[in-house]
Amino acid sequence: MTRDSGARIERVAFAGTPEFAARALHAIVAAGYAVPLVLTQPDRPAGRGMKPTASPVKRIAQEAGVPVWQPVTLKTPQAWGALVAEPPPDVLVVAAYGLILPRAVLEWPRYGAVNLHASLLPRWRGAAPIQRAIEAGDAVTGITVMQMDEGLDTGPMIARYELAIAPDETGGSLHDKLAVLAAQAILDVLPDLPQRLAAAEPQPDVGVTYAHKIDPAERQLDWQQPAPLLERKIRAFDPYPGTQTRWRGQPLKVWRAVVAPDAAEVSPGTVVAVDPARGVRVACGEGSLWLTELQRAGGKRLPATEFLRGAAVEAGEKLGMGDEEDDDVR
Rank of each mutant, 00 (worst) to 15 (best):
D4Y: 01
D4W: 01
S5D: 11
R11S: 07
G16N: 06
P18G: 10
A24L: 10
H26P: 02
A31T: 12
G32L: 04
A34Y: 06
V35T: 05
V35A: 02
L39W: 12
Q41H: 08
P42G: 03
P42S: 03
D43M: 02
G47H: 08
G49K: 09
P52C: 03
A54C: 02
S55L: 06
V57N: 14
E63G: 03
G65S: 04
P67N: 08
V68S: 07
Q70K: 12
Q70V: 04
P71D: 06
Q78M: 10
Q78A: 15
W80F: 14
G81P: 08
L99Y: 07
I100S: 07
L101R: 13
E107M: 12
E107Q: 15
W108T: 05
Y111I: 01
N115P: 00
L116V: 00
L120C: 09
R123C: 11
W124Y: 14
A128R: 10
A128E: 05
A128V: 08
R132S: 09
I134K: 12
E135G: 01
E135Y: 09
D138N: 04
A139T: 06
T141E: 05
T141M: 11
I143Q: 06
D149F: 05
G151N: 07
P156C: 06
Y161H: 15
E162W: 09
I165E: 15
P167D: 10
H175E: 11
D176H: 11
K177F: 03
K177H: 09
K177I: 02
A179R: 05
V180W: 13
A183I: 15
A185T: 08
I186R: 01
L187W: 01
L190D: 04
P191I: 08
P194D: 07
P194H: 07
Q195P: 00
R196V: 12
L197R: 11
L197A: 07
A198T: 03
G207K: 04
V208Q: 09
H212Q: 15
K213D: 05
I214A: 03
D215V: 03
P228R: 08
L229H: 04
E231Q: 15
E231D: 14
D238I: 00
P241Q: 07
Q244E: 06
T245V: 12
R246D: 05
W247F: 09
P251N: 01
P251G: 03
L252C: 08
R256V: 00
R256M: 02
A260L: 04
P261H: 14
S267A: 15
S267T: 08
S267F: 04
A273W: 01
V274D: 12
V274C: 12
A277R: 14
V280N: 07
V282T: 12
V282F: 11
A283E: 11
A283T: 14
L294R: 00
Q295D: 05
R296K: 08
A297T: 06
A297W: 13
G298Y: 10
K300D: 13
K300M: 10
K300V: 10
A304S: 15
T305Y: 06
E306M: 13
F307I: 14
L308Y: 14
L308M: 12
L308G: 01
G310H: 12
A312I: 00
V313E: 09
E314N: 05
A315W: 01
A315N: 07
K318W: 01
M321I: 14
